[in-house]
């Protein structure tokens, strides 16, 4: 590292330093760019296409052209319109499912790790049980009983079953942190447990927690796509998974309608892959040993 690019640590502080390295890490920049670009497409795209993505608007089974950017389906629906609506649902499910899993995992992990004793035993047992349960199979059975399925409901049930590894990791981390001197000091000054967890322990895991959120977000999107593909997707909306399901149901493989099933899967791969790459980059940012500069 040359003197020229070294930030003045005293002025910028730790947070500024992380931002400084994050903005210069190609993995973080590329990953975040892709995720943000697709997010913007999902947020604003639907305003520029027809409000009902299932509307029959044009000729059937046409290849991508200037008029229909991603072609049309077997029934003459605009694939691009479905695509941008589907992106929106994917982000909603990812945010909601990932968010719920994060909150549950964090609460369970901190409580278990900080409290210890019988509480820890019970919570740890619960974590391990949910961890062993094959999540997708359970989600399939639950969703199949829901007659009306929405994007929100899907996000919630995904969140309820994808928290255990977070709880496990957070528990392990707080077990090591809770006996540090500064935590003891905080306890001596009369701070209460939630305050200690929020103010003393969590900031020391902030980088780790940020990466956890990213992984949970990607995981929820993948889960939702699999559920949708089995035909348990939202009944009131289009998602990337239902697009693939529809394309397979109407034998687009044999009809050669590749523009129907390639874009949704590619978008999911791009989102989740970029999230993983961002994560690797963030790891380098937070862990100076890994920096390649």
């Amino acid at each position: 590292m040359t003197a020229g690019i070294t930030p003045d640590a005293e002025v910028i502080g730790e947070r500024g330093e992380h931002l400084y390295f994050a903005l210069r890490n190609p993995k973080v920049v590329i990953g975040l760019t892709v995720v943000t670009a697709l997010l913007l497409l999902g947020v604003f795209g639907p305003f520029f296409v027809s409000a009902d993505p299932n509307e029959y608007i044009g000729p059937k089974s046409t290849a991508p052209s200037g008029e229909y950017w991603l072609g049309t389906t077997y029934f003459g629906q605009d694939v691009f319109a479905q695509f941008v609506h589907g992106l929106r649902s994917s982000y909603v499910v990812g945010g909601l499912g990932g968010g719920i899993a994060f909150v549950i995992g964090l609460s369970v992990g901190f409580t278990a790790g900080y409290r210890g004793g019988i509480v820890d035993e019970l919570l740890n047992m619960l974590t391990n049980v949910v961890l062993v349960l094959p999540a997708l199979a359970v989600l399939i059975v639950i969703s199949s009983y829901l007659e009306v399925r929405g994007v929100i409901a899907q996000g919630i049930i995904i969140g309820l079953f994808s928290w255990p590894w977070v709880a496990r990791a957070v528990r392990a981390q707080s077990l090591t942190l809770r006996n540090r001197d500064y935590v003891d000091l905080a306890r001596l000054t009369g701070k209460r447990a939630p305050q200690i967890i929020l103010k003393e322990i969590m900031p020391n895991m902030a980088s780790y927690l940020l990466m956890t959120v990213i992984l949970l977000f990607g995981g929820a999107i993948l889960f939702a796509a699999m559920l949708d593909f089995i035909g348990l997707g939202p009944t009131d909306a289009v998602s990337l998974g239902t697009m693939m399901q529809q394309s397979m149901a109407w034998s687009s493989l044999h009809l050669g309608l590749w523009w129907w099933f390639v874009p949704p899967g590619m978008a999911i791969t791009a989102i989740v892959g970029s999230l993983y790459i961002t994560n690797v980059g963030l790891d380098e940012v937070f862990n100076p040993k890994l920096r390649e500069m």
Partner: peptide, 11 residues
């Protein structure tokens, strides 16, 4: 690792 199972299968 980012590819959804069914999409790779379809491809």
């Amino acid at each position: 690792t980012a590819v959804p199972y069914m999409w790779l299968a379809i491809l």
